[in-house]
Design a binder for these strands. Structure first.
Lengths: 200, 200, 200, 200
DNA sequence: TATGAATGAGGATTCATTCAT
DNA sequence: AATGAATGAATCCTCATTCAT
């Protein structure tokens, strides 16, 4: 009991190695030999556990998305107010820790593949929707009840913020902005929108 | 006269084919054979005209950036007020025409390579700086003279808008938002920031 | 026991095929496809076993040199006197058997590469030094004890003989001299030098 | 008048460039593009003037051999005695000047091709025979008239010396011996042989 | 379960050669 | 006479995949 199956363990090893390789060498540098080598395994094993390179990549992307979601969930659980909830989401997506950086690098690689690989695109879409939903929820609590066209405003701000976060990820991956700046910019965007709605 | 050199013409053919291939098949699918094939030429010619695949890619990226810049310049020339200038920049970057879509696809491919290929990164940086400068200029005319901390506000909004545009490009490439929406979102962001500054 | 590892076996197969190909088709004709084909294997396997064409070539050169050294060692072991030792070295280097001819052909190919490929040059140097050392030793026993400037004489004759052997290899490879002649010429050189030293 | 034909001039330019390229980059590095480039001409011209790369190489080898022969002839013309004649031949073949070094490098490249290219082999053979004949002649004057088996001795020493010179060329090309040493070794060989014949 | 042997396809690059201008 | 455009073959290398052990 408590002993995870060897199969699950090996799969995790390979996914872990895949993440590291993607972060370190990019999509093109992530050959099966290099990924397996990083895990101390032989390249042939990938076929055994995943059948396919594509499936390993898919599993890896799912893993990264899951981690991101977990992170959001954890931070959200500790948030007491709508404003804190919003801050939690932003922090989860734009945090400056090592994990965040690696995830972002991997994410960027997946991104460039997503619009050509339907399976990856699907995972991408799910994650994006999850973020949108979280933002929606937080903003819904944040905007004044009496606002005319309230639902539309929530939707608009949620969309805008999600897109801004995408842009910030890109910039962060290119090293153009610091993590602190990114968070400030994201929250500043919401402030501005609130101001426009006359709620401040 | 009017007869461009054969060399320039062939180079343009190849760059054109490279753009099409990148848009249609992505970075990984853009082999020299396919690029040259699309231009109706043999793969060996790339060496003849560009020396290198890397140099062809570089020239192609430069071409795309140049087109984008031209587009901006043309629209800006027709703009009469600061507000129109801002609209022109947004339209140039987020326009919905066929050219825009292809360019965006190519741009996305380059993006995913930029942080690993110094030469591409350089071109990328230059283009980003050009956009930033244009935004700066337009916003400088737009914000009220008497604003406290005016320079900082201009800088902040310019940065935020540039990043938002990046995000919008991504979404547009993934087909998540329509061109009309993207422009509305971008201009909405500026409106919101102006509102926050109490200028409305 | 007696079962060598498959890896070692395949490596030997490829080295063997490389030697044959070099002898038959020369350095320029020795493409990976042809080498592997001669071994009944696919070209990709070279990467698997040697990583590189350069490394295969290096291993092959080392192999040829090792065989030559073994040959010398074997003949030297059977030699009873300094004169016989000298004869053994000459026979080892200028023997007329099939092995000798193939080795010489390969050696010539390597030679033409040695002054441009540092790795090959190193192996070449080591082998040359080994020959020089053997000659030194044999001549040291051969020259009369009381000779004035004895050490210098040994050195000079050893050098001269080594160089003569080089020349003889070349001629033999071009088919200009018969193996029997080559040996006679080499030993004749030593005789002449001994005569000059007044020891006969 | 006195004006050599343009055709001859261009051919010489290309041969000159070919020699330089061979010396600088070796047989494998001597592509038509590089050779023509060094001459400031286009690669296509080679076809025009020589028809073939092989023919350019052949002409180049002939040129190098001719220069070598000229050199020998010039030095021989100034030699008054058989001993001086011998010294002249050795000096011509093992001289340490820049021309000598370049020629030797080119010669070595040709050598490695000679036993596979019949046309080059033929030129090689002619040159070797010319050297042999010169040596023959000089030694014929040098050996005492009354020597028993005189003709055989001349033949033997001439052959041995020619072969030693080959070896010395190789060593010189590899940088193992200095030009001065090479000449000393060559003349020392003759001295030794003369000593053996009891003529000293 | 895991290895590593083996393949074959595909990619970039180099190059001699041909040919229109 | 000379260029340089264009080709197509050849070469090395990388890689995903398959398979026997």
């Amino acid at each position: 009991m408590g002993r995870r199956s060897l199969k699950a363990e090996r799969r995790d090893d390979l996914i872990r190695a895949c993440i590291e390789t993607l972060a370190a060498e990019g999509w093109e540098g992530a050959s099966l030999a290099r990924i397996a080598g990083r895990a101390g395994l032989s390249a042939g094993l990938v076929a055994h556990y995943f059948g396919d390179k594509a499936e390993l990549m898919e599993a890896t992307m799912r893993h990264v998305c899951f981690q991101l979601w977990q992170r959001q969930a954890k931070l959200l659980a500790a948030a007491a107010s709508p404003a804190e909830r919003l801050g939690a989401i932003v922090a989860a997506n734009l945090g400056g820790d090592q994990f965040g950086e690696e995830s972002r690098a991997v994410w960027l690689e997946f991104w460039s593949q997503a619009h050509r690989a339907p399976r990856l695109a699907r995972i991408h879409r799910i994650t994006a929707r999850r973020l949108a939903s979280n933002l929606h929820h937080a903003l819904n609590g944040l905007l004044p009840e009496a606002l005319p066209d309230r639902a539309a405003a929530v939707r608009r701000i949620a969309t805008g913020l999600a897109i801004l976060i995408d842009g910030l990820w890109l910039r962060a991956a290119l090293g153009d902005v610091s993590p602190t700046e990114t968070r400030a910019l994201a929250l500043g965007y919401v402030d501005a929108e609130l101001a426009r709605l006359g709620t401040r």
